[in-house]
C-alpha cells in the first residue's frame, strides 16, 4: 500500500493518574467516529487504548509520570486508518523476556496479570512496539473497515 497522508492529528499528554486511560479512550472514540468507523471497531480501539495506557502507567516508571499519545487519521484522500502512538519516557523493557500469558498457567499462578499486549494485538490490525532505556512507544493501527482477506 502507498504511504498514506495524515489527514487529522490530535496529540494528548496525560498525567499518570487513576482512570486516566478513560480520557485517552474518549479521544480515540471521537477520532474513530469522525472517520465513520463501525461501533464495534471503535469499541475495540477504545479497549486497546485503555490497555496501552495502563501498561505505560503501571510499568514505565517514567520520571515525568506522563503518557504521550498521538492519534492520526491516515488516508488519501479519504480516511482509511486510525493510527495511535502511545509513548512514555520510562525505563523500557526486554520484549524477549515477556512471556505470552496463557490462561491455564494464569489460573494456577499468583500473578494473574500481564495480558495487556496480547489484548492489544488481538484487537488491533497492526501493532509495533519500540522500547529502550529511554522509553516505550506502542504504535497501533486499525483500518476504518475490515481488511478484505487476500
Amino acid at each position: 500500500m502507498m504511504d498514506l497522508a495524515v489527514l487529522r492529528e490530535v496529540t494528548l499528554t496525560l498525567p499518570m493518574l487513576p482512570d486516566m486511560e478513560i480520557a485517552a479512550s474518549k479521544t480515540a472514540t471521537a477520532m474513530a467516529e469522525y472517520m465513520s468507523m463501525s461501533p464495534d471497531r471503535i469499541d475495540e480501539v477504545r479497549m486497546a487504548v485503555v490497555e496501552a495506557c495502563i501498561n505505560a502507567i503501571e510499568h514505565s516508571a517514567a520520571p515525568d509520570r506522563k503518557v504521550h499519545i498521538t492519534f492520526s487519521i491516515l488516508g488519501d484522500p479519504v480516511p482509511e486508518k486510525l493510527q495511535i502512538e502511545i509513548s512514555d519516557f520510562g525505563v523500557g523493557f526486554e520484549p524477549d523476556q515477556v512471556e505470552e500469558p496463557r490462561i491455564e498457567e494464569k489460573l494456577k499462578a499468583n500473578r494473574k496479570r500481564g495480558w495487556g499486549l496480547k489484548i492489544i494485538e488481538g484487537l488491533m490490525d497492526e501493532v509495533e512496539v519500540e522500547t529502550g532505556s529511554h522509553g516505550t512507544t506502542v504504535r497501533m493501527t486499525k483500518t476504518r473497515q475490515p481488511e478484505k482477506a487476500s
Binding site: E21, I22, S25, D43, R46, M47, V50, E51, I54, I103, K106, L107, K108, K112, R113, W115, G116, I119
Partner: peptide, 20 residues
C-alpha cells in the same frame, strides 16, 4: 458494563480459580 480492563479481568480469573 461497556468497558473492562485487563486488571479487572485478572480479578475475574481469580474468581474462576475459586469456583474451580
Amino acid at each position: 458494563t461497556k468497558i473492562v480492563n485487563s486488571i479487572g479481568i485478572s480479578i475475574l480469573i481469580e474468581i474462576i480459580e475459586k469456583m474451580l
